[in-house]
Amino acid sequence: MKITESTSHYDNLELMSVQELLQNINLEDHRVPEAVKELIPVISSLVKEIVPRMHEGGRLFYIGAGTSGRLGILDASECPPTYGVPHDWVIGLIAGGDEAIRKAVENAEDDENQAWKDISEYGFNEKDTVIGIAASGTTPYVIGGVKDAKDKGLLTACITCNPNSPLGKEVAYPIEVVVGPEFVTGSTRMKAGTAQKLVLNMISTAVMIKLGRVKGNKMVDMQLSNAKLINRGTKMIMEATGLNEREARALLLSEGSVRKATEYFYKHK
């Protein structure tokens, strides 16, 4: 029996009050970060492998199905606006294609050959990294994808919530975050999904910082795609240069990023 499919520690959920439901869900959620903490050494080793590979032109692929695939796409899609990187630096792929982001595509996750086909559409090189995401650790789409990636010489890792899973056995860096049974039996969008999101946050954030996309603690390369981000960037420049708000905003909009604006200021000071 997979731990992710094992019976909930709670029963008769329909008889609980709303307060009891929420308290018990929250209690279970508290187990997740502690489980993730145990895997920091593995995550650290993986990040240290990814960074030099990306410095040399490698990219980071996430592959998954269902909730796991959507979480990978979410993390990948947030890297360009947050860190100002190209859209093909971090790529999220889901079984069933873009249609599956919003609704399930029947049998898509059962094709063990499709993930590599999806990756191949982007081309690949030996510096790329493929991270398979599957709460169960048994999804054919994901297992097939990392096996093919490994055979081609790419770095492989996985994020799963079952120990000694078939997926974990196929990768160089298995990140197996064991969070226990779900509050609703088998509903891995809950604790398992939360664990996967936390690990993805850790990987992409650490990688981007080590690639130089953060200065101090600021997102100096973020895209200025809305008023909130322009205001945030203006404040960053004010703090870094001592310019007033009007001057900082004008410089930001002229140069296009906090980094470029700050560099321009000190170059022409």
Rank of each mutant, 00 (worst) to 15 (best):
I94A: 05
S120I: 00
A104D: 12
P174Q: 09
L74F: 11
G153H: 13
H87R: 04
D148E: 12
A192C: 14
V105Y: 06
V207H: 09
I119M: 15
E99Q: 13
D98P: 08
S165D: 01
M208K: 13
D98W: 03
V130A: 08
A104S: 15
T156N: 07
G132L: 03
I209S: 08
G92K: 00
V146T: 08
D151H: 02
I119W: 01
I133C: 03
V90L: 01
A108G: 11
S165Q: 02
A108D: 05
D118L: 08
V177A: 07
D88I: 04
L167C: 11
V199Y: 09
K152F: 02
E121L: 10
D111T: 01
N107W: 07
S165G: 07
D118C: 03
W116L: 05
K152Q: 07
K191P: 12
H87N: 11
Q114A: 15
E126R: 10
T160L: 11
K169P: 02
T82H: 06
E126K: 14
Y141G: 00
A76I: 03
E99L: 09
M190N: 13
D110L: 05
G180C: 08
N113H: 13
C158H: 08
S204R: 09
K147D: 09
K150A: 12
V105S: 09
V199W: 05
D151P: 04
N125G: 07
E170D: 03
K197G: 01
E99P: 00
P80C: 09
T205L: 07
T160P: 03
S136Q: 10
V171P: 08
I91D: 05
V184A: 12
N113K: 06
A108I: 04
A76W: 03
P86G: 12
A104W: 07
K150L: 07
A95V: 06
D148R: 12
V142L: 14
Y141Q: 00
F183T: 09
L74R: 03
A195D: 14
A135N: 06
L167F: 11
G123R: 15
P86L: 11
I203P: 05
K127P: 07
D75G: 11
G144T: 14
A100W: 14
Y173S: 02
E182D: 12
Y173Q: 05
M202Q: 05
P81E: 07
V171Q: 12
C161W: 03
G168Q: 02
I159K: 02
G168P: 02
D75V: 04
K169D: 13
I119G: 01
N201K: 10
I131C: 13
T185H: 07
G193K: 00
A100F: 04
M208F: 10
K147N: 12
E109I: 01
P80K: 10
V199E: 06
I131Q: 06
I133R: 05
M190L: 12
P181N: 12
T185F: 04
V90F: 15
T160Q: 06
P86Q: 08
M202A: 13
Q196P: 02
A192K: 13
D148F: 03
D75E: 15
T129Y: 06
T82V: 04
V171Y: 10
Y83R: 15
L198G: 12
P140V: 13
K103T: 14
K169E: 14
D148S: 13
G123L: 03
I94S: 01
